[in-house]
Amino acid sequence: MLNQNLPFMILATLSVFSALMVVLSRKPVHSVLYLIFCFFTIGGHYLLLNAQFLFAVHIIVYAGAIMVLFLFTLMFINLNKELEPHKTNLVKAAATIVAGTLLLVMVSTVTDTGNILPAQVSQNEVGTVAVLGKKLYGDYVLPFELTSILLLAAMVGAVMIGKKKTES
């Protein structure tokens, strides 16, 4: 049992560790890099669940594209201690309350859940490309297309915001 769970345990430890380091790192760039590492470990979890396509897409989209943009902007703004905006005590108190409430909600959810079922590693190629494609374009074609329209709308909105205002 332990032997079977060993890859999972290692990956889970790494995920939790890197996720914590995202919050605890002093330099923003280090945080981003830990976040990228965290994404990799999560990708590893996908692989353990036999969802290779999800793994690849996760790496390409999140680790490969979105985080590059994160890092990109962070490098530009060059955050350091002197430039960090001073936060008032009120803001700090508000942040503490919000974070504490969120923690409370999550802890209560976890404790209320009676027994967590172990993840089922599917043997019948659920995560492979062909099956996923058939599902997406067969059973879930409407939500899928709606999502793409939503993304398109967001893209158009971003272009509108980004465009220089012309005198009208």
Binding site: Q52, F53, F55, A56, V57, I59, I60, A63, G64, A65, V68, T128, V129
Partner: peptide, 12 residues
């Protein structure tokens, strides 16, 4: 079965 995607992942 995701060879091409793997290459893209690594390249990215």
């Amino acid at each position: 079965n995701i060879g091409i995607l793997y290459i893209f992942g690594v390249v990215s």
